[in-house]
Amino acid sequence: MGKLGVVIVAAGKGSRMRTAESKQYLKLGQKPILVHTLQLFQNIHEVDEIILVVGETDMKRCSSYVKDYALTKVTSVQAGGAERQESVKKGLDALQPGTEWVLVHDGVRPFAAVEHVLSCFRKAQESDAAVLAVPVKDTIKIVNEAKQIKSTPDRRSLWAIQTPQAFRLSVLLDAHEQALNEGFLGTDDAMLVERMGTTVHVVEGDYYNIKITTPEDLPWAEWILQHVRGEGHR
């Protein structure tokens, strides 16, 4: 079996958190959020290597994390690009030869369940592309610029997409190449693969796999750490 690499993207500034510090470096328990995320993948046996993509000014502190927390699977810390898509591509390009599979994951999602990560990976091995997702709980409305409701899609067909997103590396590289050549900017990697005509499968995760984005997420993250997904629970 070809190697499995993980690209963890943590280059964003995260203005929605309204803190001077970027959200991935805020403390959760005793450690930065990003360290929790890195340790999650460090401890998954199937993962061969981790590429960490961060803001250029954060490379030094992230290299210190790698050393201080014995993150032996992190083989490279890369400076990200202006857009997430560019950051992911830099991470993909840094993967070692012989890597056949890749998981792309948000640096501010420290609570993905290991069994869901592995289910997503196995689905990609069957089908080339899979993403973790959960059914949407709320009714979703399509709204125009004047904040007027235009339509209500059937909730049964709506899923909130999470990470990791798992791909055959060659497929994702082709998708990134095509997007770059055509000047297309997507909101996630699955979107780039979808537009090439490849079917992306959804693997059901859970609602604890939150993306820590706004101040409201922090107390909820602390609770998850204490009661569900902290190191004592893994």
Score class of each variant (00 low, 15 high):
Tyr208Met: 12
Thr199Arg: 13
Glu177Leu: 04
Thr198Tyr: 10
Asp217Ile: 02
Leu158Glu: 03
Ser157Leu: 04
Trp220Cys: 08
Thr213Ala: 11
Ser157Tyr: 05
Ala221Asp: 09
Trp220Phe: 15
Pro215Glu: 14
Thr199Ile: 01
Pro164Phe: 02
Gly197Gln: 08
Leu180Gln: 09
Arg156Lys: 04
Val193Ile: 11
Ala190Pro: 00
Asn181Arg: 13
Thr198Lys: 09
Gly186Gln: 02
Asp189Met: 11
Tyr208His: 12
Ala166Gly: 03
Gln165Glu: 06
Pro219Ile: 13
Lys211Cys: 03
Phe167Thr: 10
Ser157Met: 04
Ser170Gln: 12
Ile224Asn: 03
Met196Tyr: 06
Trp220His: 15
Asn181His: 09
Gln165Ser: 14
Ser170Leu: 08
Glu216Ser: 13
Arg195Tyr: 00
Thr187Tyr: 05
Glu194Val: 10
Leu169Met: 05
Val202Met: 10
Phe184Asn: 07
His176Thr: 06
Ser170Thr: 10
Val203Pro: 01
Arg195Val: 02
Trp159Arg: 07
Tyr207Asp: 11
Glu222Asp: 11
Leu180Met: 05
Gly186Tyr: 01
Ile212Thr: 11
Asn209Met: 11
Leu225Cys: 07
Leu173Gln: 12
Ile161Glu: 03
Trp223Leu: 12
Ser170Lys: 11
Trp223Gly: 07
Ala175Lys: 07
Ala175Phe: 05
Asp154His: 09
Leu173Trp: 03
Gly186Asn: 06
Lys211Trp: 10
Gln162Lys: 12
Leu169Ala: 07
Gly183Val: 03
Thr213Ile: 08
Trp159Tyr: 13
Thr199Gln: 12
Glu182Arg: 14
Leu192Glu: 02
Ala166Ser: 08
Leu225Trp: 08
Gly197Trp: 07
Phe167Ile: 13
Asn209Trp: 07
Asp154Ala: 12
Trp159Leu: 04
Trp223Ser: 09
Ile210His: 15
Leu185Gly: 03
Glu216Asp: 15
Lys211Ile: 01
Thr163Arg: 08
Met191Ile: 06
Lys211Asp: 12
Ala175Arg: 06
Ala190Thr: 09
Arg168Gly: 08
Ala190Asn: 02
Gly186His: 01
Ser170Asp: 10
Asp174Asn: 10
Glu177Ala: 10
Pro164Gln: 07
Arg195Phe: 01
Leu169Phe: 06
Glu216Arg: 15
Ile161Ala: 02
Thr163His: 06
Leu185Met: 07
Ser170Ile: 03
Val200Gly: 04
Asn209Asp: 14
Gly205Arg: 06
Leu218Ala: 11
Met196Gln: 10
Gly197Ser: 04
Gln162Val: 00
His201Thr: 05
His201Phe: 15
Glu222Ala: 13
Ala221His: 11
Ile212Asn: 15
Gln162Met: 02
Leu192Thr: 10
Ser170Tyr: 07
Leu185Glu: 08
Ala221Met: 11
Arg155Leu: 04
Val171Ile: 13
Asp189Lys: 00
Asp206His: 14
Met191Cys: 02
Pro215Val: 15
Ala160Ile: 00
Arg156Trp: 00
Thr163Pro: 02
Ala160Pro: 00
Asn181Gln: 12
Arg168Ile: 01
Gly205Cys: 05
Leu180Phe: 11
Gly183Ala: 08
Ala175Tyr: 07
Leu225Val: 15
Asn209Ser: 14
Arg155Trp: 01
Met196Asn: 04
Lys211Phe: 05
Asn181Val: 11
Ser157Arg: 06
Pro215Thr: 15
Gln165Arg: 04
Leu169Pro: 00
Ile212Gln: 15
Ser170Arg: 11
